[in-house]
Design a protein around this nucleic acid. Structure first.
Lengths: 123, 123
DNA sequence: AAGATATATGCGAATGCGATAATATGTCTT
DNA sequence: AAGACATATTATCGCATTCGCATATATCTT
C-alpha cells in the first residue's frame, strides 16, 4: 500500500503536468466511494447483514426488520443497481442474496466493528 | 454472524411488540452507517489512503492530491469530527494520521478491492 | 509589531437523497 | 378472466451535503 504516495510524489517532482497516476487513483477512489455510498445507509446495512446469512425474500426482510414493503423494495433496488445483491425468482416471491465476496468481506468487517463482541455494542 | 436473524425471528414469533434486539441492531447500524458516510467521499478516501501510509501535513496532502487548501482542510475537519483521524501540531504545521485500527482495517479492505492487483484497477 | 506561512472556518448556491404515499406490474389460483 | 398476493416504480417534498470562495486564526521569523 505504501507505493501510492511514492508514485505520486515521483510524478510531482517531474513538474506540474497532469499526473496519470493521480488520475488512475482518483478514478478508483470514485468507484470505491460509490460502493461505500451504497453501504452507507442504516436500512441498507441491515438488509445486507441479513443477506450475509443467506438468501431472503422481500417479505421476510420486511417482517424481520419491521419496515414497509416499498421501503425495502426501494433500498433493494438501489443495492441491485450497484451490483451488491442479486435476485432469483421463484413463482411470486423473489429471493435476494449478496452478489459477490467483496460485499461479504466488507460487511463482515463492519459487522465485527459494531456488533462483534457484546462489549463493542455500546461503542 | 448467523445469530442476527435467529434472535430477531424468535422475537417476531413472540408478538408484535417492539423488539429490543431489533432496537439494538438498529442503533449499531446507525453508528456503522455514520462511519461509512464519513468514508464515502472520493477526496476523503484519497486522504485516508495516504494517511494509511503514515502521518502527513495538510500541505503535503494538498500537493500530492493537487487539491486546494480549503478543500483539504474541510474534509480533514469532517474526518476529525468523526474520529477517523487525529492531529499533532509541530510549530506551524499540523500532522494528520489515522485515529485507530478500525479505520486502518476498513481502508485496507477497500484499497485491496479497488487498487489491489493491477488487473482490478479497471474494475 | 509586521509580514509570511500554515491551517481553519463561514457562507451561499447547487445538488442529491430519503421517507412516504399512491400506483403499477407480475404471478398464482380457481 | 378475476381476484389475491408479492414486488416494483413513480412523484413529491423537505433536508442534508457538497463545493468554491472569501476570510479568519494561529504560529513563526525578523
Amino acid at each position: 500500500m505504501s507505493i501510492v504516495s511514492r508514485r505520486l510524489e515521483d510524478e510531482l517532482r517531474e513538474g506540474p503536468e497532469i499526473s496519470p497516476e493521480l488520475d488512475r487513483l482518483m478514478r478508483n477512489a470514485r468507484k470505491a466511494s460509490d460502493f461505500l455510498k451504497a453501504l452507507s445507509h442504516e436500512n441498507r446495512l441491515l438488509l445486507l447483514c441479513l443477506l450475509a446469512e443467506g438468501e431472503r425474500s422481500v417479505t421476510e426482510l420486511e417482517n424481520i426488520l419491521s419496515l414497509r414493503q416499498p421501503t425495502v423494495s426501494q433500498q433493494l433496488a438501489r443495492l441491485r443497481l450497484d451490483d451488491l445483491v442479486t435476485t432469483r425468482r421463484d413463482g411470486k416471491t423473489i429471493y435476494y442474496s449478496l452478489a459477490n465476496d467483496d460485499v461479504r468481506r466488507v460487511i463482515s468487517v463492519i459487522y465485527d466493528m459494531y456488533c462483534g463482541t457484546p462489549a463493542s455494542d455500546a461503542k
